[in-house]
Design a protein around this nucleic acid. Structure first.
Length: 231
DNA sequence: CACTGATCATCA
DNA sequence: TGATGATCAGTG
């Protein structure tokens, strides 16, 4: 019997990473935080990334702020995803910031988002606000690589959205564009602006945008793996 | 219910 | 400012 302890060093293989993630399944966030010596906030209002940080700690991810995958050596990105009692996502999933300028030569193949989604370790966590944060439990992890169909969907949406961005229509994009991928603000607040291309090709200032996976996509992805109902 | 736009903390 | 980690909260 081995004690449950956080990985202090990066996992060396995907199998090691997955095994460690599997060991966490069933534990509450309160238990994992206590064992890791991490203070537990009352709720996530002022600590929206707290669960992600906690899981990074337990899984030996290079914690913090690197513009790379969480497990660069393994080519794996870590994503926690809040789910309801039936395993359905409660929120869209942020993937990465969308490039609004300098997109010459950018294709789906060499895009940042494709690289991010090449391999993702999904860790579902109970997310209903009726459950106190400390009592929410970690679910079974899923090491995921997009299927051909999933990648096709992502590419279609990405190309549609990027076309609009490049053509100066970024401010006309709504969250309904795209079947599985959406573009929404991703900023500190509404006063944080970034450069983009205007309707007449001129530079404009607009809210930074991010790519988010819609719930229908992540729901199906989790369902495919866990064989849960998708409705 | 999904969509919308806004927001929070931390780091370089 | 923009990258990392995301969720909040109001409206159709």
């Amino acid at each position: 019997m081995s004690a449950l302890i956080p990985l202090t060093t990066s996992p060396q293989t995907q199998a090691e990473l997955l095994t460690q993630a599997q060991r966490l399944a069933g534990y509450s966030l309160g238990e994992l935080a206590a064992m890791a010596g991490l203070p537990i906030p009352k709720d996530l209002k002022r600590d929206k990334g707290w669960i992600g940080i906690l899981l990074e700690l337990w899984l030996g991810a290079s914690a913090g702020s690197k513009p790379e995958q969480d497990f660069a050596a393994l080519g794996v990105e870590l994503k926690t995803i809040p789910i309801d009692s039936l395993g359905r996502p409660l929120e869209t999933t942020f993937v990465c910031v969308a490039p609004l300028t300098g997109n010459t030569g950018v294709t789906w193949e060499n895009s940042h988002i494709r690289h991010k989604l090449k391999c993702v370790l999904w860790v579902p966590v109970e997310g209903e606000r009726s459950i106190p944060l400390a009592e929410r439990r970690v679910g079974s992890p899923l090491l995921w690589t997009p299927s051909a169909e999933e990648e096709r969907q992502l590419q279609m949406d990405w190309e549609e959205l990027m076309d609009l961005i490049v053509l100066g229509q970024v401010e006309k994009i709504t969250a309904r564009h795209g079947e599985v991928l959406q573009l929404r603000p991703k900023a500190a607040n509404s006063k944080a602006l970034t450069e983009a291309i205007g309707a007449h090709g001129e530079p404009i200032l607009t809210l930074p945008r991010g790519f988010y996976l819609k719930k229908n996509f992540t729901s199906a992805l989790l369902a495919r793996h866990f064989m849960l109902q998708t409705y």
